[in-house]
Amino acid sequence: MSAVPLLKVNDVSKFYGSRIGCRNVSFDLFSGEVLAIVGESGSGKTTLLSCLSTRLMPTSGIVEYHMRDGQYRDLARMGEAERRFLMRTDWGFVHQNPADGLRMTVSAGANVGERLMAVGDRHYGNIRVAASDWLERVEIGIDRIDDQPRAFSGGMRQRLQIARNLVTSPRLVFMDEPTGGLDVSVQARLLDLVRGLVHDLGLAAIIVTHDLAVARLLSHRIMVMKDGAVIEQGLTDRVLDDPREPYTQLLVSSILQV
């Protein structure tokens, strides 16, 4: 982890009219660090993730990103072209529902290769090799490279979505309930895979989950949200083993009882 933050979040709030989405959230994220945002349904996790990833404009507050050129940029002030370029090169976004992040009617190979073509790769052979490599890394057989994700299981689709995001070597990946719709056994395999990739690639990641077991397995740090606010944050083991806030204690004990 480097000494300067990759992402600086300062007092971010989002209101939907008079309803609170999230409020007064501040934190720094360092490169290679995995942050889990946990909390029950409606606590503001998705809203916060959307504000951080520029999918939503915060009502107030500033989110700054440390660009590859070493400069910090206020994401809200970035032009749309540059922002979209950042999103498909230096960032990834893994949706809970893979269909939201994949092109369901083009082959697995093209799904992985799209970002390369978007940044100007014009060599079919090279794109093909990169796509094969990535399918292998996410444990999809190379014989499936020309199949459309429509023919894939939920777990395979999610792994394909991950490969599609990682092919440009992003530094930061956002994930919203990445294991959400999957069977428990499939979840376990996916979590192992994500953990391995994040570690091998030195990725920074912000993972939204309502599942504390996912947070435990993947994250270095946890933020607990309630009613749109962060009520507790700290190293994952500390927060889960020794929760300070009564609400967090409740969350942790309820998961232990299940």
Binding site: G109, A110, G113, M117, R122, Y124, I145, D146
Partner: peptide, 22 residues
């Protein structure tokens, strides 16, 4: 429209890629 405005034409090559793959 946005893709034209921002000159995001990667998709055109996705189409050609699919052609060659098939």
């Amino acid at each position: 429209r946005k893709m034209h405005a921002l000159e995001e034409y990667g998709l055109m090559h996705v189409k050609l890629y699919e052609d060659i793959a098939r």
